[in-house]
Nucleic acid binder design. Sequence first.
DNA 1: CGAAGACTTGACGGCGGTCAACATTGGTGG
DNA 2: CCACCAATGTTGACCGCCGTCAAGTCTTCG
Lengths: 263, 263
Amino acid sequence: MADSENATGAQDPGAELDSHSPDDREFSFGATLDWRRLDQIQALGTRQSAVNKPTTVLRQGQIAASFYILVDGWGLRYRQLGDGRRQILSFLLPGDPVTLSALSPRRLAHSVQLLPDCVVSEFDADAVAEKLHGSEYLQACVNASYEHELAMADELLTNLGRRSAKERIAHLMLEFDSRLKLRGADHNRDISMPLRQRHLADALGLTTIHVNRTLRILRNENLIDMRGGILRILERDRLIALAKFDAAYLSAGTANGIDAGEH
Amino acid sequence: MADSENATGAQDPGAELDSHSPDDREFSFGATLDWRRLDQIQALGTRQSAVNKPTTVLRQGQIAASFYILVDGWGLRYRQLGDGRRQILSFLLPGDPVTLSALSPRRLAHSVQLLPDCVVSEFDADAVAEKLHGSEYLQACVNASYEHELAMADELLTNLGRRSAKERIAHLMLEFDSRLKLRGADHNRDISMPLRQRHLADALGLTTIHVNRTLRILRNENLIDMRGGILRILERDRLIALAKFDAAYLSAGTANGIDAGEH
DNA sequence: CGAAGACTTGACGGCGGTCAACATTGGTGG
DNA sequence: CCACCAATGTTGACCGCCGTCAAGTCTTCG
């Protein structure tokens, strides 16, 4: 069916980002696209601040004045539908840029909310955009991050379009686990997570009630225990099999070459 | 709670792309991100070819050797799930680049199929990537296109997560209509469209059977008539109201400032 | 004319939405 | 320290949208 290419896992995508013009090297993002390094550029005037209650820092329809880096905590990108319905487009984890869209002077197509206990670095959006023009390295980082965001959006699309509620939740939890590990978080199986069941529902196209039901099923089956702001992955292998999870998309590339005939 | 910002609607996003360094102006993409102008760069050695049967030009897991521009016809980006399930991530229309991902030397996370009666321009992926480094203007075009693709992915996410089958189909049809018009196609209400009901199903997270049922309902209600490769939008206003369609996301910005309290 | 693919229609069932209570948790002030 | 309240989580009953299965018909093309 498909050539079985062993998951070496040791691939190092984005590594080429480290081999650009040396004058840029003051801020090396590395292969994991960790934007926290941007703080190293003194000229941009970093301003760190803590967030201790849910805060919408960017609102759809507006033009962004600030570009943020999420230093610690969780955030979410979402779109509002007017009649109250909300769709969460992606979750932001430590190291993520808070909207690459903020770097272009256009109206935002989505809002961004930071959840309690966040720390963000704030930059002047124009200043960063200006800095971009002079730096091929930074441009490469932006492109790589765009690829990463698109890959995650595509995976979520696949989730919503083609997986059951149980698979969706399992898949999202495994994504959190993988993303945190790629950024160097050293949790064992417990992940501190400020998300409510509402957040899972709004991201996965479900209702909170059904998320609740499904979480209970997953807990009864000894797969996931998510309660009290703690996500605990119990039997990872079975969970991965259930969700058909392949972490390849998180490193902006896929290892398995699935082939199908035309049509 | 928030300032009500009037929808001016007359903004011209992307217009600034035309005011860059003059030496780049040999290939002006304009505000509509129409990549067909890339043909003007002789150094890249354009090679046009016609496609008259469904052809997968890029396959997930591989590294792209070519970068294409869709000159005429329709294509689709999709992801395969191994067990046969397929999710269409986006549709490609004339003027669209066939995967910005092809410009970075990584494994593709999705496949691209061209439908019958396509015309594409083919470029060497490395050559275009190389050209990128020297041109701020081209970089800006790439960024703007990334924004555009993300905006469309986000909208499709909203579609899958928060809209009914009827709304989804209506919304997608209106998107096709708008995108074609933005690229200068001058159809009245009939759109020539090679998509089958399977394609709508695979994009919208439905089954062909339910797409069929829903299309019949839409036809009975005098909203859409899609048959024999022709899409006919009958009563646009009612359709827009049904789908809650707002074309703002297609110009990489949103005009309506929806406000909601925190939480 | 035959075959393959696309489209159509009906019967039936399940996943997940809706409605309605109620329990639990956490924060706030008396 | 406890009363209170709001937000979140939990559970059950019911139902509808959409998936599944099955049997066609229509279209296209060799």
